[in-house]
Design a protein around this nucleic acid. Sequence first.
DNA 1: CCCACTTAGGGAAAACGGTCACAAGGTCGC
DNA 2: GCGACCTTGTGACCGTTTTCCCTAAGTGGG
Lengths: 213, 213
Amino acid sequence: MARLPLYYRALLETAEREVSTISSERLAELAGVNAAKVRKDLSYLGSYGTRGVGYDVEYLLHEISRELGLTRDWPVVIVGIGNLGRALANYRGFGARGFRVVALVDANPELVGHPVGELAIEPVDELDRIVAEREIAIAILATPAVAAQEVADRVVAAGVTSILNFAPAVISVPEGVSLRKVDLAIELQILSFYQLRKFSAAAGESRPAEAAS
Amino acid sequence: MARLPLYYRALLETAEREVSTISSERLAELAGVNAAKVRKDLSYLGSYGTRGVGYDVEYLLHEISRELGLTRDWPVVIVGIGNLGRALANYRGFGARGFRVVALVDANPELVGHPVGELAIEPVDELDRIVAEREIAIAILATPAVAAQEVADRVVAAGVTSILNFAPAVISVPEGVSLRKVDLAIELQILSFYQLRKFSAAAGESRPAEAAS
DNA sequence: CCCACTTAGGGAAAACGGTCACAAGGTCGC
DNA sequence: GCGACCTTGTGACCGTTTTCCCTAAGTGGG
């Protein structure tokens, strides 16, 4: 379930405040969702809360981190070290949750060898070897759109079974490989869409584009 | 509809290949969705395809860009110029679609005045004035989690009605303000979740964590 | 001009996700 | 030990989204 990480973060914050028990209602508030949904999600985990009391924060944290695989160490490769790739490489949020960036790869020969944080950029030719040797199961793609499919094919062939795609392109992967995509431009376009509708609603117009101008 | 930007991009690529007409099936393939869904979405737009032929690429592009508000110029402010904020500021993908980054704001006094691309970083104290004067309706938040809610409150008070939140925190906004969030760590955790289930399925185990180790 | 073929449109059913409401279980004060 | 109170777990409902499938409309070849 895609909401588990949200609960996880909320629970982490709660644990820091040394609160030992939490109700589904409070947790729902922290995660920004409905209380019934929280209970449904957690019950699906088989996880046990105590009626009349709530959930034990520590225990629930442990259960969720186990379910999410956060107890394990996941080596990650980032392919495409442009603006975004570099930012991702430097992003501290990953390491804390068991995601360890162990390789940075780029197709540009001029970038190879260049250090980013504690790693040096490696050539894309060696992608197969890198993935295999370091037992990488998760790849982050931050390449240009045109290169995304080819890189995806290569990392999958080398053994990667989960891909997080930041390239603005639809890529296809074989059955059994997980794929998630984050597209910055699309997010903004969705906001723009609603923004426009706000204007048209306010102006009482039926033609949004007109209303917005 | 959140799929419109996907169609838009697919149509752009198609237009570049100088194809003048496209079937719902082909478009569905390019966008990675179901053909019936494409037709439903487009018919909801009131947009006209021609039976037996397909959709006129140019016309459809025009209709969608109008619907998405891409014909308009949207000034955008980025708040929080850390790794991610800087990458977003340099990201070329925005400008092309009518999103123009017109201000970079950070709370760190040492960063103020520092140039990033063609803009200089401005102090967070002036956020209200900046948003009002430049008629900014869309804000991108790339601050640390603890600052996110406060910044959100401020930009909303100043007149922003759409927020794209990259900070790993749940923030709440008043009715009428659109909010979308992108959380990198959460995306990875979701992948990790499925990754774990793959292992457990392969091993025929019922306890995923055990199977993965 | 007609017929075979292609493709959008849209009604109907199915699947999904979310919410509600309530019963069951547990705590705490007295 | 009992009753008032709280909170989980879950079955039923409801709205939305997705998918299926058939009809209508248009094209092109003979």
